[in-house]
Nucleic acid binder design. Structure first.
Lengths: 204, 204
DNA sequence: AATTAATGATACGACGCCGTATCATTCTAT
DNA sequence: ATAGAATGATACGGCGTCGTATCATTAATT
């Protein structure tokens, strides 16, 4: 998770240009995300985030008020990120494979770990992730099932989603296995579809 | 999660009896479990654990060395607790219902949250929970499937387990819903069995 | 050009929590 | 019975981290 940046970059002092401010915001939030994903909220330090973002703590507090503020703003932007990938004229099978692959990525696993761990302190984050992540996945699965089968789409989509997660996803959450390959994700997705009788072999 | 104990209990000073020592051990580990489940490892304080256990910090450090030692010993005992419920001459359907109900309990959800959050710091805990919890569940499901169907038991058992968890379990982990009733658990279990063609209605 | 705003570098105060020390007290061991 | 071991009550040192303050520096503003 540790991106070996070229540390010796020093930034100019003094008041920055407007572009400089925007750049600082982005770098702070990027560093915050990566730090929160790796260490969780409690164990991530503002000093480290500042160092990674090539910014002093003063700037962070000037921009976001406090540590919670950084987290909250980062969470706000995640809603857009997680729900991305809006265009998707795929088949059900390739959609399922892509969902599996994405869920097993280091980014998503780290995010889910973080959200689960901090669900009591930041309940809104859990809601955000669920609505814009999981539920959107289910909805898109339902669209495809509806288009290809046209019956019982919603219920079957949620069932399918549960299978797409599966025990391997759980093992990944627990840190017991490494991320899977795209091929393995496709294989798992196909197996899940088969279990539910949703393979491309038409029913009748 | 806060059990409103009767606080004014004061314990005698001085060297305790042997039974007293055993009692202290239990109370410390009980308090540790409840605190770690509620706050996570980082946010749980030894002072609070000591207060809950009616013991001074000195005793805790005398018994377990440090905070990590308390956690490790608690984890060791969890292996036995999680794998409990060994006798189980149930039907597949009632077994599935009991698994669902158990997984949604506050204890199990808190434990899984803790394990996922601390999977990097305490990887052994994740392995323990998975082997003695999930895998044992899958194995028992496989036994029943094997007995009732006698074909493809292991693969189907893991698939079934994924469905038994399902999106509701995920919502529970995220703190989005409350624990379900035993009836709801049974309904969910039956639905999962039906999706996989494993209901009591014999296939042929 | 002069003034104001924002930043970097650095130090530091405040706070929380881990772990230890001290003294009185009670049980165990011999 | 006497000495030693373990505990409660309490205080406190040490450390890490959050958040703020100071001064020099640079850009925006007027």
């Amino acid at each position: 998770m540790e991106s070996a940046h070229s540390e010796p970059l020093e930034r100019k002092r003094g008041r920055p240009t407007e572009a400089g401010r925007i750049e600082r915001q982005e770098q702070i939030l990027d560093a915050a995300l990566s730090n929160f994903l790796e260490y969780g909220f409690g164990n991530a330090t503002v000093d480290r985030i500042a160092a990674d973002a090539r910014v002093t703590k003063r700037t962070i507090y000037s921009y976001f008020g406090n540590k919670d503020g950084v987290f909250t703003e980062m969470q706000r932007r995640l809603a857009d990120t997680v729900s991305g990938d809006t265009q998707n004229p795929d088949t059900l099978e390739s959609l399922a494979a892509r969902i599996v692959f994405g869920l097993h990525s280091a980014q998503m696993i780290g995010l889910h770990r973080l959200v689960i761990a901090e669900s009591l302190r930041f309940p809104d984050l859990a809601r955000t992730l669920h609505d814009n992540g999981d539920m959107r996945h289910v909805a898109r699965l339902a669209e495809h099932i509806d288009a290809e089968r046209g019956w019982g789409a919603t219920d079957r989509a949620e069932t399918l989603y549960a299978l797409l997660l599966g025990e391997d996803y759980r093992r990944r959450l627990l840190g017991l296995i490494e991320p899977i390959t795209a091929d393995a994700a496709a294989g798992h997705a196909y197996s899940a579809l088969k279990h539910l009788g949703l393979t491309d072999v038409q029913v009748r």
